[in-house]
Design a protein around this nucleic acid. Structure first.
Lengths: 153, 153
DNA sequence: ACCAGGAATGTAACGATATAACAGCCCCAA
DNA sequence: TTGGGGCTGTTATATCGTTACATTCCTGGT
């Protein structure tokens, strides 16, 4: 996430939390910023290292911040990677799909209405009420597919 | 999984492995049976307890068996639960979707062509090649939706 | 039948992810 | 001013999964 987008996201986050009466404390803001700055999904303990930065902090510090940010829809958790990414459009609540490149590790966030529609139809046939769809696709991104197959490591 | 289905699955598993030159050893068969007998997704350490059954066994024993069974498509892993379920139709390779009831814990395995189609279309638009789609939907199953909301625990 | 070699298993230790439980602090509202 | 709720600090522990290496077992070639 580039600097410009990051700033927009942080401002949106502040506005959203203010509107909802949720407290985006410095700690939480810090974690959000770290997640967003990471080019790839980042794990909780990796975040912890960065939050510590010489000082001291324990896992609950990071996990509590992450829980808050997840609740507010400011970040997403990738279940298949046990890692987190910043949401680039937190302005409306949404259920996303993720394309995860097994080669370069980059993740693309989709919000595909047709896909969600299919999912709800399929669930409805079983009388099932979806609450939290988890859709993560491991594969190869366009960039990596075009690369000549591991260019001389 | 009832006794009859279990027997069919075990026979299919033997046939499949024989055809593929894969060895369904007693240990692996045991784990497969335990996974299939469980009414709900079962965790690796829960399996370990059952495999031990008084004797001794260590995590790698179970994880190795699980890896084998996953490779052979005889069981599935539920990423959101860190748990495993038996596949009821291992005869053909397939990518499934799972409906996970947050109330009773039961899981329904789907194989919905339309849903997979939507997913591939959505991925294609980004030039992404799907290799392993993970689709797990947390929600409420039909049975639990009809229950009068926590019947006197 | 023998033996070489790969596949499967046993065993101990460890790494990674996540939560529990309780204590202290800060700020606002009554 | 005081009390209570929300946030944070701290220690310990639960849960999930892997590494590394020794041993055993099975199988195929001779």
């Amino acid at each position: 996430m580039n600097e410009q987008l990051l700033n927009r996201v942080l401002r949106q986050a502040e506005a959203l939390c203010a509107r909802r009466g949720a407290r985006l404390t410095p700690q939480r803001r810090r974690v959000l910023e770290l997640v967003c700055r990471a080019e790839r999904p980042i794990g909780a303990y990796e975040l912890l290292d960065q939050v510590r930065d010489g000082g001291k902090a324990a896992p609950p510090t990071v996990y509590r911040a992450l829980d808050f940010l997840l609740e507010q829809g400011l970040i997403h958790k990738l279940e298949t990677l046990h890692a987190f990414i910043g949401c680039t459009h937190p302005d409306h609540p949404h259920s996303s799909q993720f394309l995860i490149c097994a080669d370069c590790g980059k993740v693309t966030e989709l919000e595909d209405a047709a896909l969600l529609g299919s999912l709800h139809s399929a669930a409805a046939e079983s009388g099932f009420s979806p609450q939290r769809p988890v859709i993560e696709v491991i594969g190869t991104c366009a960039r990596c597919a075009h690369k000549p197959d591991r260019p001389a490591d």
